[in-house]
Amino acid sequence: MEQFIQGMPKAELHLHIEGTLEPELMFEIGERNGVSIPFASVEEVRKAYEFSDLQSFLDIYYAGANVLLKEQDFYDMTWAYLQRVHAQNVRHVEIFFDPQTHTDRGVPFETVITGIHRALQDAEQQLGISNKLIMCFLRHLSGEAALETLEQALPFKDWIIGVGLDSSEVGHPPQKFTAAFDRARAEGLLTVAHAGEEGPPEYIWEALDLLHAKRIDHGVRCVEDEKLVERLRNEQIPLTVCPLSNVKLCVYDRMADHSLKRLLDAGLCATVNSDDPAYFGGYMNENFLAAQQGLDWCATPSRRRSSIGRARMR
């Protein structure tokens, strides 16, 4: 099974590039930029990766991102991710970046996006990985701040396929960002949104109806609302599910409890992704393998409705 998953061509649709910053690279970049890290060693960083919920993860995530200051830093981080997933036969990526995490520290928007974009271009040419870039707004910040960030992004609109919404979900419903998403759509950008990870199914409805999201990132709590499941199935709105992340952040106690297979068996367009792989214990192959083992998911078509290889929309 491991060999089958390893060689399977894959696409990754839910990946925060800042969440790929491995501790070794974090230390390397921190050292060359003269930025101290609140940990003594790589081992100490890894030991800190025991999270109780989304917020406990985000506190460490933002601390790690502080080392990123220069265009080359963003290039190196992105290139390291692309090399890793190339080795896992990932053929296409659609990745998120969080400009506000950096612009709020004084790093120019252009520095951030140019480093990421350059690595994506190199990966397309040298590794054959096609790509799209999605700019996320931090939902714990204001709707006005999202609009300001969008204005900064517009000169680089050709490098971005769409906008998304991430960070602390509970207490920050999608409706807070209606104006920013309206403006983004008016500029021709597509929209996606994190919803239904820790937040309630109502947030998924809002993401669909107010933000006109083309995909829902996570969305696993949709199973609590039958009408919502019916809509997601009828409209075949993709869910970008992240199995290891959901267990690591205690959305589910163990993989066996995860809703992924139920979503697929119900005919929803669920996909497998890694979210923040440096923090959650694995990239694409590790997510597929953990889901396969935890959910007793078959590899190739059988009498069961879903299989890893051919899991598909109806």
Binding site: G7, A11, H92, E94, K132, P238, T271, G309
Partner: peptide, 30 residues
């Protein structure tokens, strides 16, 4: 996984090419 390729923001021809690559892989592995 076919869903992942279908759910991308790629154009139809690139989606189809990647899905064929996947189908060929699964058929060979089956």
């Amino acid at each position: 996984m076919r869903n992942s390729f279908e759910a991308t923001f790629l154009d139809r021809s690139r989606k189809d090419a990647l899905m064929k690559e996947l189908d060929d892989y699964v058929a060979t592995a089956a």
